[in-house]
Design a protein around this nucleic acid. Structure first.
Length: 271
DNA sequence: ATTCTCACCTGCGGGC
DNA sequence: TGCCCGCAGGTGAGAA
């Protein structure tokens, strides 16, 4: 599920409410993608100071160390004063003095990992190669164009790789390429600079709109208050194979790139 | 170094 | 009704 907008919607929904809370206990279900990396007792008594985000990782900073939370494909976080007893897919609950934070993740591709700090080994391993934040000032058009022009990979896969810009997953990569009029299979370096500049602008715009719409809910995702996102209803191509292109009316196509579905319009994205 | 494939895990919808 | 297949928002590991 969660690409940058969904993670950001999650963060915005509970960050200010949990900051300042003291952790009382944690509860665990089935194993997630990676082990916590410390004794769960280490968390008890820690005070949460700030909730940030890097790419698709939530960073729960504490007075001692931080938690890196990833939602994988099917994860969602819920934060509430009162939560029901954990269900079979609730694999982590953080009980704090300000409420209870719970990770629901049927597929368990998500993770909760403890790190001493952002420069410790595990944090660097997970965050070290990530590209620029697309909603930050550092995401500039000239730098983006220059970096993309170095890459042989098909442009969609260059976006998904996250080494140039983070947070753009399968939905938003398809949408951004459609809005920029770029064929997803074109090698990044073969896309003209003006189209790349357009892509830069459109990535910002589409992610911003998606955050405003509460993210996309295909099946699992909900924000920390339990509300579904509705950006998926605004999608131009994603999930619309065989349906008419919103611009030209021709049938939206689907193809596979690196085992992932790509949706595009062969007319509007001619090259 | 790159680039590609596999693997992780569960659930759902479609076709037979 | 029920089974089997394909598909799903991510990404690290290992092979080629």
């Amino acid at each position: 599920m969660p690409e940058l907008p969904e993670v950001e919607v999650t963060r915005l929904g509970f960050a200010s409410r949990i900051e300042g809370a003291t952790i009382m206990a944690s509860a665990w279900g089935k194993p997630l993608r990676w082990p916590l990396g410390c004794d769960p007792q280490v968390l008890v008594g820690c005070q949460i100071t700030h909730v940030g985000r890097r790419g698709k990782y939530l960073l729960i900073h504490m007075d001692r160390g931080l938690l890196l939370v990833h939602l994988g494909m099917s994860g969602s976080l819920r934060f509430a004063d009162v939560l029901p007893a954990p269900g079979p897919h609730d694999h982590f609950t953080l009980h704090t003095s300000r409420g209870h934070l719970r990770l629901h993740d049927p597929r368990r591709f998500g993770a909760v990992v403890f790190a001493d700090g952002l420069d410790d080994d595990i944090a660097r391993k997970l965050l070290g190669k990530l590209g620029v934040e697309p909603l930050s000032e550092d995401f500039t058009s000239p730098a983006f164009v220059a970096r993309m022009r170095e890459l042989r990979a098909p442009i969609k896969q260059a976006l998904l790789a996250g080494e140039v810009v983070v947070g753009v997953g399968n939905i938003y990569a398809c949408e951004a390429l459609f809005l920029a009029g770029i064929r997803p299979t074109t090698p990044a370096r073969a896309v003209g600079p003006r189209r790349l500049a357009r892509l830069h602008a459109v990535i910002r715009a589409v992610l911003t709109q998606a955050v405003a719409a509460g993210g996309s809910t295909l099946r699992d995702f909900s924000g920390p208050d339990g509300n579904a996102g509705h950006f998926q209803t605004q999608a131009s191509v994603y999930g619309r194979e065989g349906q008419p292109c919103v611009q030209c009316g021709k049938s939206v196509r689907r193809l596979l790139q690196g085992q992932r579905s790509t949706y595009y319009c062969a007319v509007c994205q001619a090259r």
